[in-house]
Measured scan of single mutants.
Amino acid sequence: TTYKLILNGKTLKGETTTEAVDAETAERVFKEYAKKNGVDGEWTYDDATKTFTSTE
């Protein structure tokens, strides 16, 4: 399943996707990605669109 991440950081904005077996796995991948890029925001998830959003 393809999951999408929308980053709305103070210094980094953008989108990326990952293939994962479930939302929990995708969330771990995306949170590590955000951390590596210095984004520490509030997380939301929309199951209908398989989209995570992190907003600082």
Rank of each mutant, 00 (worst) to 15 (best):
Y45K: 00
A48V: 11
L5E: 02
D22C: 06
E27D: 05
K35F: 12
E15M: 12
Y3C: 02
E32M: 08
T17L: 09
D47K: 08
K13N: 09
K35H: 10
G9C: 07
T55V: 09
T55F: 09
E56Q: 09
L7S: 02
Y3F: 12
T11I: 11
N37S: 09
E19H: 13
G38L: 05
F30V: 01
A20C: 09
K36S: 11
T2Y: 07
G41E: 04
T49L: 08
E24W: 09
G41L: 07
G14I: 15
E42T: 14
K31C: 06
K50F: 08
T49R: 06
T1W: 10
T17I: 09
D46C: 10
A23S: 09
E56W: 09
T25N: 08
I6V: 11
K50S: 05
G9D: 03
W43I: 06
T11R: 07
K31P: 00
W43N: 00
K4Y: 14
T49I: 06
E32C: 08
F52Y: 05
N37W: 14
T55C: 06
T2F: 09
L12W: 15
T18I: 15
R28K: 13
K31E: 03
T18W: 08
T25E: 14
T53W: 10
K36T: 10
V39P: 02
T2G: 04
K10M: 13
A20R: 02
D47T: 08
K36E: 12
A23R: 14
K50E: 02
A48F: 11
N37E: 09
G9S: 07
K13G: 05
K4L: 07
D46G: 00
E24Q: 12
N37H: 15
G9L: 08
I6A: 03
D22W: 03
D46W: 03
I6D: 02
T17H: 08
A48G: 08
K35Y: 11
R28C: 09
N8Y: 11
D40A: 10
T25V: 07
G38I: 03
G14S: 14
T49F: 04
F52Q: 00
E56V: 07
R28Q: 10
G41K: 02
L7F: 12
D22N: 10
E42V: 15
E42H: 13
V21Y: 12
A26F: 00
T1A: 10
T11F: 14
E15C: 14
A34M: 07
A26Y: 00
I6Y: 06
G14N: 11
K50I: 01
T55N: 08
N8F: 10
R28T: 08
K36L: 14
E42S: 11
Y33D: 01
W43T: 01
A26R: 00
A34D: 01
T16F: 15
D40G: 08
K10L: 15
F52P: 00
T44W: 08
V29H: 13
T55D: 09
T53H: 07
K13C: 14
E42R: 09
E56K: 04
Y45Q: 00
K13D: 05
T11W: 14
E42W: 11
V39I: 13
T16Y: 15
E19S: 10
T18N: 02
F30I: 00
F52C: 01
E27S: 08
A20N: 03
G38V: 03
K13T: 10
T44P: 00
K4I: 12
V29E: 09
K10I: 15
D47W: 07
Y45T: 00
A26V: 02
T16Q: 09
T44R: 08
S54E: 04
T25Q: 13
T51E: 03
Y3R: 00
E42K: 11
N8C: 14
D22G: 03
D47G: 08
T51D: 00
T1V: 11
E32D: 11
E24L: 12
K4Q: 04
G14R: 13
F52A: 00
E56A: 06
D40T: 12
V21R: 11
G38C: 08
T53L: 07
T44C: 08
L5S: 01
D22E: 04
V21M: 12
T25D: 08
T17N: 07
T17F: 14
A23I: 13
L5T: 01
T51A: 03
V21K: 13
K10T: 13
T1D: 12
Y3L: 02
Y3N: 02
E19K: 13
N37K: 12
T44A: 10
A34H: 01
T16I: 15
A23L: 10
T53G: 02
T17V: 08
Y33M: 04
N8S: 09
L12A: 09
L12C: 15
T25A: 13
T49Y: 04
D46H: 06
T16A: 11
A48Q: 11
T51W: 00
Y33K: 01
L12T: 13
Y33L: 06
S54R: 03
Y45E: 01
F52N: 01
N37M: 15
E19N: 12
T11G: 11
L12D: 05
T49D: 04
L5D: 02
K50A: 05
E42Y: 13
A26G: 01
N8T: 07
G38N: 10
K13M: 09
A23H: 10
A34E: 04
I6S: 03
T55P: 03
E27F: 15
Y45A: 01
T25R: 06
Y3S: 02
E19A: 08
E27K: 10
G9A: 06
G38T: 03
R28G: 08
A48W: 06
Y33C: 05
F52L: 00
A48Y: 10
E32Y: 05
A48T: 13
G41H: 04
N37Y: 15
K10F: 14
Y45P: 00
D40H: 13
E15L: 08
T25L: 06
K36H: 09
K35M: 11
G9P: 03
N37Q: 13
T2Q: 10
L5V: 03
F30C: 02
R28H: 09
T44E: 11
K36W: 08
E27A: 10
K13W: 11
K10E: 10
K13S: 10
Y45L: 01
T49N: 08
K4P: 02
V29P: 01
K13V: 12
V21P: 15
E24C: 13
V21C: 13
A20F: 05
S54M: 15
T44H: 11
L12K: 09
I6M: 06
G41N: 04
E32L: 09
N8E: 08
E15W: 14
K50Y: 08
D47Q: 10
G9E: 03
T55Y: 09
I6P: 01
F52K: 01
L5Y: 03
Y3D: 02
A20P: 01
Y33V: 05
D22A: 03
G38E: 05
T18V: 14
G14T: 15
T25I: 07
K31T: 04
Y3T: 02
F30Q: 01
F52V: 00
E42A: 12
E15D: 06
F52D: 01
L12E: 07
F52R: 00
D46V: 05
T11E: 11
E27I: 08
K36G: 06
T18D: 02
T18H: 08
A34R: 02
T53M: 11
S54D: 04
E32F: 05
A20T: 05
A26L: 00
Y3P: 02
E19C: 15
G14L: 15
G14C: 15
L5M: 04
F30H: 01
K35G: 05
K13A: 08
F30W: 02
G41R: 03
V21W: 12
E19R: 11
D46T: 04
D47L: 07
G41I: 05
G38S: 06
T2K: 11
T2V: 14
G14V: 15
K4D: 02
A20E: 04
G9I: 04
T51P: 00
D47Y: 08
D46P: 00
L12F: 15
G41D: 04
L5G: 02
Y3H: 03
T49V: 05
A20Y: 02
D40Q: 12
T17K: 07
A26I: 01
